[in-house]
Nucleic acid binder design. Structure first.
Length: 585
DNA sequence: GCCGTTTTCGGCCCGACTGTTTTCAGTCG
């Protein structure tokens, strides 16, 4: 039982309570849920070790919620929740996902029309019944249908960042088992896509029967779709499916290549193979019926006269041509793509100063553990009141603290430094919510859009360009504003933004947060081709988020980014020069 | 329902936006 499971339950209770018109309880439940979700300690363990008292020690959790958690751990259900659901029998979690639809509106349309889930909501909207209800209108009805359409498009896929850890655990479990000789992840996960449909795992086993038994009894598996000697399929409790294929060792590379995809890359590769008299399949590379490669991926590409290709760029976007060796004509091959180990620090991290979970020192410690050379603290600034944004005075105070910690680190002789930045807000008119005199004192400054998302393309583009012109702004955070499966990017003329970024020496962020991944691979590629520099940041609000950097690196790789394109892969000195150059413009 | 450097009651984050209204409720971040 994961903290998140209980947290989600508390969130849903909060929604039901809000629908009932309860004023402050929802706030309390959401706070408790948030604390649970971000707590590093397992609630169930806490309860087993310390009982109710231990639960009440968690901030935001008092007697009543502690008892509800106890009830859930013991009985697997919460009476209060059952009571609320009985009173208003609707699929709350499903309905509030619809844009513009909150708990109260969900309850209202249930009472008026008997709408209890998204399906019946869609039907009612199509029959123009929604617009007849008081408080709704034609526009609401249109928005509801639009939002449902958007949701449908993205349904059935999961955010890679949300399931990655669990998938890695599965991989490790299989690897540790004696039943498996080799295990590898394939599919879109291996290609670093931001969302994945299902998980493909390949394995080699001397005893496929036993191996499949082991697989089917994995912790967290809730349903076995199928179980055979070569292929089995499971549904995990989080809702995603995992396919395991057992292949002969001599075909492992070929199978890995085949099941990694993409389909388009594979088709192109098979065409190359055919043109040279080979036949390529998931079983191997064959010439006149004789297997010539297949044990490793490298072997297959080599025999085809190609360089091994990073999975992230296997999209048939010119990587095939680039990978073909042509030494005679000194043709440039594939670029050496950026790797996680190239990253020297994180420039977008929040701290307790604006409501983050960890203080600056704790964040720094984690960065040191990761082998970084620097950490950029960039807390929100004052316009974002909900995030306790810092004003000019508080930024100055934070500067003192950072200098003190840097001094402490310097004395240990460690090669590590904390930089002070800020994630400022680009206001509606393109101005920055922090005065230039204060920005000047920072090591660098980020600017991002956090309000007024719905502007015309022209206005939004002008707004961002105006911010880039500010001589203290070095990075634009999450440049397109998209939230995966939740919000489309805001309207911008990206080519114009790229030109401005180049002229005003501003880096665009590759935000590594699982639901952002913004820029994405496609936009990274465009930025790179325009000669625009980028920064791969995590937007961490607590130290456990720092590991998301690998998601950002995957997007960067998907966009063919190299070390030279990523400012936080440079030496800190060179990066600081990039920032300084801006001030001189 | 939770919390306390305003400590057992009274406040809880709050301003902007949206779509609906004609002064506001609900949603959003």
């Amino acid at each position: 039982m994961k903290n998140k499971e209980i947290a989600n339950l508390l969130y849903e209770i909060a929604d039901f309570l809000e629908a009932e018109g309860s004023q402050f309880k929802p706030f309390a439940y959401r706070k408790a849920a948030f604390e649970l979700k971000s707590s590093q300690k397992d609630v169930k363990e806490t309860y087993e070790e310390e009982g109710l008292r231990g639960l009440e020690d968690i901030p935001g959790i008092g007697k009543s919620i502690a008892e509800k958690i106890e009830e859930y751990i013991k009985k697997g259900r919460i009476k209060e929740f059952e009571r609320l659901k009985k009173k208003t029998p609707i699929k709350m979690k499903e309905l509030v996902q619809i844009g513009g639809m909150g708990p109260k509106k969900a309850k209202l349309i249930y009472e008026k029309l008997g709408v209890s889930d998204v399906k019946s909501l869609e039907k009612a909207a199509k029959e123009n019944k929604i617009s007849k209800i008081e408080g709704f209108g034609e526009k609401s009805e249109k928005n509801i249908l639009e939002s449902i359409g958007f949701l449908k498009k993205s349904s059935g896929r999961f955010l890679t960042g949300e399931i990655l850890e669990e998938v890695k655990e599965i991989e490790e479990t299989l690897k540790k088992s004696k039943n498996f000789k080799r295990v590898a992840l394939a599919g879109s996960l291996r290609r670093g896509k931001e969302t994945v449909g299902d998980i493909d795992i390949l394995a080699v086993s001397d005893n496929p029967g036993k191996a499949m038994d082991f697989f089917a009894s994995l912790p967290g598996a809730v349903k076995v779709w199928s179980k055979g000697k070569t292929k089995s399929s499971l549904r995990m409790s989080r809702g995603f499916d995992v396919d395991l294929r057992i292949v002969p060792e001599r075909s492992f590379g070929a199978a890995l290549q085949y099941f990694t995809g993409s389909k388009e890359h594979n088709i192109a590769l098979r065409k190359i193979a055919a043109s040279k008299g080979f036949k390529l399949s998931e079983y191997g590379l064959f010439k006149k019926g004789k297997m010539v490669a297949g044990r490793t991926e490298e072997g297959i590409y080599r025999v085809l006269g190609m360089e091994w290709t990073d999975p992230e760029i296997r999209e048939n976007q010119k990587e095939i041509g680039a990978a073909i060796n042509d030494f005679e004509n000194k043709k440039p091959g594939l670029p050496r793509l950026i790797e996680k180990r190239d990253i020297k620090g994180d420039l977008h991290c929040h701290s307790v100063w604006n409501g983050g979970r960890n203080d600056i020192w704790e964040m720094a410690e984690s960065c040191i553990e990761m082998g970084y050379e620097f950490l950029g603290i960039s807390d929100h600034t004052k316009f974002l009141k909900i995030e306790k944004g810092l004003d000019e005075k508080e930024l100055e105070k934070q500067g003192w603290e950072i200098r003190k910690i840097n001094e402490k680190i310097r004395k240990t002789g460690r090669h590590f430094r904390i930089l002070q930045g800020a994630e400022t807000n680009i206001l509606k008119d393109g101005s920055i919510d922090i005065k230039n005199e204060a920005l000047k004192k920072l090591d660098y400054a980020i600017a991002g859009i956090h309000s007024n998302f719905k502007m015309s393309k022209r206005e939004m583009t002008e707004r961002i360009i105006k911010a880039m012109k500010n001589r203290h702004i070095n990075i634009i955070s999450h440049p397109t504003g998209r939230l995966l499966q939740r919000r489309e990017p805001y309207e911008i003329d990206f080519d114009k933004i790229l030109r401005a970024a180049k002229i005003y020496n501003v880096a665009l962020e590759i935000n590594s947060f699982p639901e952002r991944l913004d820029l994405d691979g496609g936009n990274v590629r465009r930025a790179k081709e325009a000669g625009v520099k980028m920064a791969i940041n995590t937007d961490s609000h607590q130290k456990s988020h720092l590991k998301n950097i690998s998601l950002g690196v995957s997007q960067a790789k998907r966009g063919w980014a190299e070390k030279k394109d990523i400012i936080n892969a440079w030496s800190p000195e060179k990066m600081m020069e990039f920032f300084k150059k801006k001030h001189a413009l």
